[in-house]
Nucleic acid binder design. Structure first.
Lengths: 128, 128
DNA sequence: TCGAATAGGGTTAAATTATTCCCATATTGC
DNA sequence: GCAATATGGGAATAATTTAACCCTATTCGA
């Protein structure tokens, strides 16, 4: 049966030519890097993550957590208790990504002023 | 006058809380990392870049190059000749990003097999 | 004179991602 | 019994990003 269960079926396949494409594919997603970061910091439960990232809806966080899990960057442990308790952890694969994210974040921190400036300038230009 | 000239006016403002958000904002765009990479490698002219990235249309490349320029990561030099000649170069700011992209790409290369595997697995799951 | 090469913008359509709202479960405390 | 807690999925819609297609301009070479 070809019932897609409302999961989106991609029509354009991703490019996977080089390392940069590959890492882009698993990190592309508005909240993924933050999720990995906060999980690494020890905020493992969905409700905690939600509190750390209040701008995202619970729904998107779930979806992106599912993707991270499908890409084997995090594992999900469900405790059979009520009310339910769930904990995400980084896999070894996920952990190996943390130093990379550190480098990214460091460059962002080092250039914070400049970045804010150019981003705001462009935003204002867009909206006139 | 509030004529938007068909540039999209954002309704949801980006998050700019930390370094990771900031760098994400300037690198978010399907072809931007590749553009920076190839420009750094010396492929400066739009037609060269187009040949290096045949999957993107000329249009998107132009748009993303404009954004990179607006974010002061690249500069554009127009030679007053016919047929027109244009060259993009990294700014100092753009150059400072290259080591960061190297780290990303390196991780991607180091984990190529694994990444291909998890990405393909997920794609297949999506499309059933 | 026609076609290729070079560069780039306007407009619309499609694809993708994110938001919103609603529903369901089961226990604890009031 | 009812609200709160904790987790998560379905469906529809909004927002955003990319793709597709068309048009402009000039010069060189066949």
């Amino acid at each position: 049966m070809d019932y897609i269960c409302f999961m989106y079926e991609r029509k354009i396949l991703p490019n996977l030519n080089c390392g940069l494409d590959l890492i882009g594919e698993v990190l592309y997603g508005k909240w993924k890097i933050r999720l990995l970061w906060f999980i690494n910091e020890g905020h493992k439960r969905p409700s905690e993550l939600q509190r750390k990232i209040p701008d995202a809806t619970r729904r998107v966080l779930n979806i992106q957590l599912n993707e991270l899990e499908a890409h084997d960057l995090v594992t999900k442990k469900i405790y059979p208790v009520v009310p339910p308790k769930v904990e995400y952890s980084l896999t070894e694969f996920g952990k190996s990504l943390i130093p990379v994210l550190s480098v990214l974040g460091q460059w962002g921190d080092d250039n914070e002023e400049k970045l804010r400036s150019v981003i705001m300038k462009r935003l204002n230009a867009e909206n006139e």
